[in-house]
Design a protein around this nucleic acid. Structure first.
Lengths: 325, 325
DNA sequence: CTGAAAGCGCTTACAG
DNA sequence: CTGAAAGCGCTTACAG
């Protein structure tokens, strides 16, 4: 920077201003500075800037997986929104509470202007570290329950209940549930609760439950069908907590010669791209992962610039009806 | 840090050493320091560390998309490898040369220890900036042609040629190609060239070509079938540059009552999870996106620690035969 | 609108 | 093994 200042015949201060607050420096001085900078290939050192100003224009995000379409959408939303506002994204993929703790610790050393988390279940040490740091926080994909600072999500319970009711209204009477293990995690549990509530309302049994690992992929749906049909041979429908399980179930029906939805109905969750393409189309809950990412980034930036945004944002959901039920 | 030093009754230097080079400070002093740090909730300021040392322990990656399984795998590989080595990932999603340039500029201000790019086609300004910065570079998903510094990928031409030959050997005689637009991008073009070479070897026509946007998704396969079958009614096979197009084509066959592979054959590229699940299973080229990410991260870290790694790494590919051809 | 001074919180290289 | 000094490249707050 001092090189640029010398080259342009001004003080370092003016160079700094020419980059950060161009309107404050006289047009011709600014021009001289920018020309000198270009000639020297000068790129301002943001590290020094962060240290001096205490603002990093960097936001960290922790996601459990990048392969999952939902979180991929969220990351895309974060990335788009942050880029638009001149911020950068520090990404950490952490699929366990322990890895999350480690990631948080190293991320905190970078002094981000905010941290975006997934869900509301964290290691106690993580919570302590975050609280201590005072950094603005957004928890995503969850809306109810205790939150640390801010949250962006939708009503998981209601979304699952809506789909449960739809299945009931279509006349299915032995409806299974394919969920994520471990089932006690609140992000997972709320969906199950909503589903069960809908079945109980209708006086149907609500204990046809199967749990597969988040990483199970399409196999989750196949396994759920096998296990639940063994448990209840009259099983006529399956609600899956992810379209991936649901599409796996559809493929399994195809292999077994079951005609969907005549012989068996399948409903999903996520409205991933494949839901609209598979034959028959998948009836599913459309979640708004991209919007969650954008909203979360927006909250952090608002706070970083001194605003006091609403602490909880509900991006909603939608039931998309296609041919699979 | 000085608070911790005071609390522990040592100099700031020793606090620094206790964190960065614990073996250099006496066990009991170290213990005293770490206890004090824990009590005060001290997290070392990595920003100041970076400024002072010139090393950021941060690696930036630019990918065109995070929704594409291939790049999602690469990002996962990067993330895993970097986390293992105590580095962090600065992620930028840039789907055009112009956005790439912007991203590079802002990323460079952060003084990363290395930058990982996708492909080898960049804006001239981008190249100038990168050269000037002297930061270690890895270009991914490409191996041939000019590279800026280091590269990790596989032989795209050969992979496509292998699949082309397989189709020919199975007796298909009117084989179409569903590629990405714009077709002149080298990452895309090499696949087409390999495919065409295989057809010409066999004396077959090699001009049944269709290009869809990278963002076309499953629709790419559907469109390719419609256009190419109109162009050549005897079309009996389709090679797609992504499994997504291929699965889209399979679904289209299903809708039209075409039995695969009896009436029509489909081959893909990527070996995404769905390739093994769809009915019939998709014959495809297995690419190694995860390994590309890991290797790229490894190259940067090696260089950051003073090593001189091999400039090009070939992670290979594999043809996976299932039921679709 | 422009500039000289102090300081952000570390690390480096050197001395003890 | 431990520490006092200088410096990394900016920004802040203030004076001119």
């Amino acid at each position: 920077m001092s090189d640029v200042a010398r080259e342009a015949g001004v003080s370092p201060m003016s160079v700094s201003n020419a980059f950060k607050r161009p309107e404050i420096v006289q047009p011709e001085t600014r021009e001289r500075i920018l020309t000198a900078a270009r000639r020297l290939g000068y790129v301002p050192n943001g590290v020094a800037g962060t240290l001096a100003s205490g603002r990093s224009r960097m936001v960290a995000a922790l996601v459990p997986s990048i392969r999952n379409s939902s979180f991929a959408r969220t990351v895309q939303g974060l990335s788009d929104q942050l880029a638009e506002q001149g911020y950068q994204l520090l990404l950490a993929v952490a699929d366990t509470a322990e890895r999350e703790r480690q990631a948080i610790e190293s991320v905190l050393g970078r002094r981000p202007d905010g941290i975006i988390l997934t869900g509301n279940e964290h290691h106690p040490d993580t919570i302590r570290l975050l609280r201590q740091s005072g950094v603005p926080l957004v928890e995503t994909w969850i809306l109810s329950g205790p939150i640390l600072d801010m949250a962006v999500g939708f009503d998981l319970n209601e979304a699952a209940q809506a789909m449960g009711r739809l299945l009931v209204s279509r006349g299915y009477r032995h409806i299974g549930f394919a969920g994520y293990a471990p089932a006690e995690r609140s992000r997972f549990l709320e969906r199950q609760r909503g589903f069960q509530a809908a079945l109980r309302e209708a006086g149907l049994r609500d204990d046809l439950l199967f749990y597969a690992e988040e990483t199970a992929g399409f196999a989750g749906g196949r396994l759920a069908m096998a296990v639940l049909r063994a448990q209840e041979p009259r099983l006529d429908a399956l609600f899956c907590v992810t379209d991936i399980f649901a599409v796996g179930a559809l493929f399994e029906c195809q292999r077994q010669g079951l005609v969907v939805p005549r012989d068996f109905a399948v409903a999903g969750y996520g409205d991933f791209e494949i839901a609209a393409e598979v034959v028959p189309g998948l009836t599913t809950v459309r979640t708004r992962g991209y919007e969650i990412g954008r909203a979360a980034a927006h909250l952090i930036v608002e706070r970083a610039e001194g605003g006091i945004p609403a602490p909880r944002i509900d991006v909603g959901f939608e039931v998309i009806i296609r041919g699979s039920i």
